[in-house]
């Protein structure tokens, strides 16, 4: 998993809980490299889960909420650092549509070894979208948070329901319905 996710997660934690708390939590989390992450590196996803769990235990906030928060954080990070992916999009649906066809294409140019999740989108009605998120990592809530943040970014309001596929647990189905 890309180092940038780790770096951003720790930044968010510092922002939320302060540097000392972060130092403390990381020390306790029993991480392979003691939390020394760099954006250009790659790290196992299990480490990310460890960090999330550690902060959850420390703060009493459940892991799912933390993941959603992190989804919001990451979207903001992306808007700031990769504005080119947002410039020509008029709404959240078109942004979600472009993940596979545009964004991941660019990511692979820089990180050919990146293991990217897949996002299959389908517009069932003009106001509703089905999105199938498939990833070996248990980060459905993180994805949920990103979708919420995307709607917020375009000043849209909508209901998001998610359901883990019964037969394939690595697949999560999202249904996004815009409020008109």
């Amino acid at each position: 998993m890309k180092g940038t996710i780790f770096v951003e997660l720790i930044k968010m934690a510092e922002n939320a809980f302060g540097e000392d708390t972060v130092d403390e939590v990381l020390d306790k989390a029993d991480l392979e490299n003691d939390g020394a992450y760099t954006t250009v590196g790659n790290y196992p996803c299990s480490e990310l889960v460890k960090i999330v769990v550690a902060f959850s235990e420390h703060s009493g906030t459940d892991a799912e909420t933390l993941q959603k928060m992190f989804g919001h954080w990451m979207l903001t990070h992306f808007v700031e650092h990769y504005p080119q992916f947002f410039a020509d999009k008029k709404d959240a649906f078109s942004l979600l549509d472009s993940i596979e066809s545009e964004i991941h294409v660019e990511v692979r140019k820089i990180y050919p070894e990146a293991e990217l999740p897949t996002f299959i989108t389908e517009r069932t009605t003009p106001n509703q979208m089905m999105m199938i998120y498939a990833s070996p990592r248990p980060l459905g809530a993180f994805c949920h948070g990103m979708i919420e943040a995307a709607l917020a970014h375009f000043d849209e309001k909508g209901d998001i329901t998610s359901q883990v596929n019964i037969t394939i647990p690595t697949v999560t189905n999202f249904e996004i319905t815009l409020q008109s």
């Binding site: 540097e19 130092d23 020390d27 003691d34 939390g35 020394a36 760099t38 954006t39 250009v40 590196g41």
Partner: peptide, 18 residues
């Protein structure tokens, strides 16, 4: 803090190696 400093040094060393 010292631990934060060590962590950043380790991260940099790794980044440079990469």
């Amino acid at each position: 803090s010292r631990s934060r400093y060590n962590r950043e040094c380790a991260a940099r060393a790794e980044a440079e190696k990469l």
